[in-house]
Design a protein around this nucleic acid. Structure first.
Length: 424
RNA sequence: GGAGGGGUGGCAGAGUGGUCGAAUGCGUCGGUCUUGAAAACCGAAGUGCCGCAAGGUACCGUGGGUUCGAAUCCCACCCCCUCUGCCA
């Protein structure tokens, strides 16, 4: 949520920055400001009346004590009370409308965020490694999965529906090995604390990180929308600190978690979705940072490097891009995407999205810290995938495939898998 | 699921209709003392909103209600704890 004071102070430049993301959220800003003015004017009047009421009520107390008649004064106060109630209702209406609209305004892109309409305007920041070369025609992960019986989409559909998969045999073990490898890496080399949160999340938390109110249709709801299946561990993990007032000694907080993620992916069928690439349920290891505002820029760089380490350790070629204004997620001010090369697929796949949300999420969830001067300030929150499993899995299989269809296992993963080769 | 107890400042915990934004302790900050620290002592300090400010106002789990006036009384809901049932 944006600070209303930013909107008040310079509405035109805020509009321009919101506009740079595309979409029409900026058109709400005038109404927000109108509500704000109405609210404040009403508030002032209401408070004046409340002040009168408090004063006169005290007089009544005095009169009663001395046994004098207070009925005419009581009638006066009753009238004031009615007026307070009426104005209070107007103020509440304006206030809730203002909040409702403000929750729909996305975060401001960072000042230096590249301006552009869509993903074609995302600059590549760096690359690591090279596309592997094969002396045979590499196949894609779907084919490799079939040959080695690693996963089965029909078995996913049988017990659930399309968009779900069942991993089998060494395929299931590889999934588990990768999760274990990722958590071990982040907790030992990157100083993260591991948490294992609930996967069923309440509404307040979904508002806190910005999934609600705009993206309700993208998520699986339970109990008439009172709860949702977690679309990402970002939601439960960041919200562990919702409505908290932290001390400076508590920061930075670095948490990692493995969770399954559930997304309806409404309307995205067929597009870039072959095999495991886009599922309704997928595993992910997430990295969450909660830091002081002045540190968040540095932590985004570190966080991105931590996610990249995963691919380096596994020897997978990747590139890191920065998202332009038009491609940025709703709550994010600045985002790096890491894309891993998948030789059989013949393209790059997004395996991680690392974002700095500034105080956008912490303002929504009232996550603050007390600084040296005793002032309460909003924290900055960040998160990144470290990494998403299915696409990592895809790139892994396709990169390490052999002519006979078997998969070579790199050294880093061998202890977790108990073998140096799958298949053949 | 059932019975009982409880939700108050960063934390713990008093407070059962007006003088309560709220005792006390811990923790925090400043000071005295000390070579320095600890201890002791003195002092400061809740959060949001409105206001240029002075100041005002709201907030005692959430939402309603009673009242001239509610942390305090009533209703509903949420959460936590203890016991208990079923159960991985």
């Amino acid at each position: 949520m944006l600070d209303i004071r930013l909107l008040r102070d310079d509405p035109e430049s805020i509009k321009t920055r919101v506009k740079s993301r595309g979409g029409d959220a900026w058109t709400l800003i005038d109404e927000i400001l109108a509500c704000d003015e109405k609210r404040r004017a009403g508030e002032t009047e209401k408070q004046q009346l409340q002040s009168d009421r408090n004063r006169i009520s005290k007089e009544i107390g005095q009169l009663k004590k001395t046994g004098e008649d207070s009925s005419s004064v009581e009638a006066e106060v009753r009238k004031i009370g009615e007026r307070i109630k009426a104005i209070g209702e107007e103020v509440d209406t304006a206030d809730s409308r203002q909040t409702e609209l403000l929750l729909q305004i996305p975060n401001l892109p960072h000042e230096e965020c590249p301006v552009g309409e869509d993903e074609t305007a995302n600059p590549v920041i760096r690359e690591w490694g090279k596309q592997p070369e094969f002396d045979f025609e590499p196949v894609d992960h779907v084919e490799l999965g079939k040959r080695n019986e690693l996963f089965d989409f029909e078995l996913g559909a049988r017990v659930s529906s399309s968009g779900f998969v069942t991993y089998t045999g060494m395929g299931a073990r590889l999934e588990r090995a990768l999760i274990q490898f990722l958590l071990d890496l982040h907790t030992t080399a990157h100083d993260y604390r591991e948490v294992s949160p609930p996967f069923i999340i309440n509404r307040d938390s979904m508002f806190g990180t910005g999934q609600l109110p705009k993206f309700e249709d993208d998520m699986y709801g339970l109990e008439d929308g009172a709860f949702f299946l977690a679309p990402t561990a970002e939601v439960p993990v960041t919200n562990l600190y919702r409505e908290q007032l932290l001390g400076i000694g508590d920061l930075p907080i670095k948490l990692t978690a493995y969770t399954p993620c559930f997304r309806r992916e409404a309307g995205s069928a067929g597009r870039e979705s072959r095999g495991l690439i886009r599922m309704h349920q997928f595993d992910k290891v997430e990295l969450v940072n909660i830091v002081r505002p002045e540190d968040s820029a540095d932590y985004l760089e570190k966080l991105t490097a931590e996610a990249e380490t995963v691919l380096q350790k596994l020897g997978l070629h990747y590139r890191t891009i920065e998202l332009c204004t038009g491609d940025l997620g709703f709550s994010s001010a600045k985002t790096y995407d890491i894309e891993v090369w998948a030789p059989g697929h013949g393209g790059y796949l997004e395996v991680s999205s690392c974002s700095n949300f500034f105080d956008y999420q912490s303002r929504r969830m009232k996550l603050r810290f007390k600084d040296e001067e005793g002032k309460n300030r909003f924290c900055h929150t960040l998160n990144g995938s470290g990494t998403a499993l299915p696409r990592l899995y895809v790139a892994f299989l396709e990169t390490y495939q052999q002519a006979d269809g078997s998969i070579l296992i790199p050294e880093a993963l061998q202890p977790y898998l108990g073998t140096d080769r799958i298949g053949a």
